[in-house]
């Protein structure tokens, strides 16, 4: 199972949209996809039209009460298996202060599902220094920094990278950093300049595919389905199809270890 965490300090840069629609594109290729919502705002859960009722296990139970992650899974539109979030997930940060190695919990919870899924996509909250993001980074083979092609985006991305570097050193994390550009409008000169700047800074770490700004993506989220289900021929669906192709070509944890050997 390849595990990718979608991260950025900044909100509204397209983390959830990327995670949900990439999950849809990978599922459309026939991959077995697990999407883990780690954001207390539960936007990925909402974007797939799931409402978690009282008593139904969610990610908060996994991280706070050691419920098995498999017990939370719900099959959503497009064939994605979702581990949903609720507002209660916000309590994890506080509970972490009373717990030993709180950032190890997600990696342990994902381990039994390693053979059941080809990909696990982790949608992180817009806070890279919290215990939820630390859980995601510890569990991930690849941290995907989602960079919006808008004002201050590159500066924010560089700050996040600096924070990751500290985290990686402090907690001995071993993930591979990748970058994806989102909300790109090639008619806007600022967006074009930002893409050139992001390319100059991140080079080969930047995915070839850039996700274009699209009304279809907003409609898909409002309809509670990935864009591949709403309109598989639209440009946004093509963007995610291309991104899925690149992600499928990434090497997973076992392959990375084999490569080192």
């Amino acid at each position: 199972m390849k595990t990718l965490a979608f991260v950025n300090q900044k909100g509204g840069c397209g983390k959830t949209t990327t995670a949900v629609n990439l999950a849809g594109a990978l599922a459309a290729r026939g991959e077995r996809v697990l999407l883990v919502d780690l954001d207390p705002q539960a936007h990925a859960t909402l974007a797939l039209s799931i409402a978690v009722e009282r008593g139904v296990p969610s990610m908060a139970d996994v991280l706070l009460r050691e419920v098995a992650l498999g017990a939370t899974l719900q099959v959503t539109a497009g064939g994605i298996h979702l581990a949903p979030a609720t507002l209660e997930l916000g309590e994890v940060e506080e509970a972490a202060q009373r717990t030993l190695f709180p950032e190890h919990r997600l990696a342990e919870a994902l381990r039994p599902l390693g053979d059941e899924f080809d990909f696990a996509l982790l949608d992180c909250p817009p806070r890279a220094d919290g215990v939820l993001a630390a859980n995601a980074l510890r569990a991930a083979d690849h941290a995907v920094l989602v960079v919006e092609m808008g004002a201050f985006a590159l500066q924010g991305a560089l700050k996040t990278v600096a924070l990751f570097r500290e985290l990686a050193e402090e907690r001995e994390l071993g993930f591979d950093l990748r970058v994806v550009g989102t909300l790109f409008d090639r008619r806007a000169e600022l967006a074009r300049e930002l893409l050139i700047g992001t390319h100059a800074r991140f080079g080969e770490r930047l995915f070839d595919t850039v996700i274009h700004q699209s009304a279809r993506l907003r409609e898909a989220a409002a309809s509670g389905v990935p864009v591949q289900v709403l309109d598989p021929t639209c440009r946004a669906a093509r963007d995610f199809e291309a991104l899925a192709e690149e992600v499928a070509a990434l090497r997973g944890a076992r392959e990375l270890v084999a490569g080192l050997a």
Binding site: F184, I196, G203, F207, D208, T209, V210, R235, R238, D239
Partner: peptide
């Protein structure tokens, strides 16, 4: 992303 991919995103439709 290499220079060719960057160019395709800036001056064409990208992946296609």
């Amino acid at each position: 992303m290499d220079g060719l991919a960057l160019f395709c995103n800036l001056s064409a439709d990208g992946p296609v």
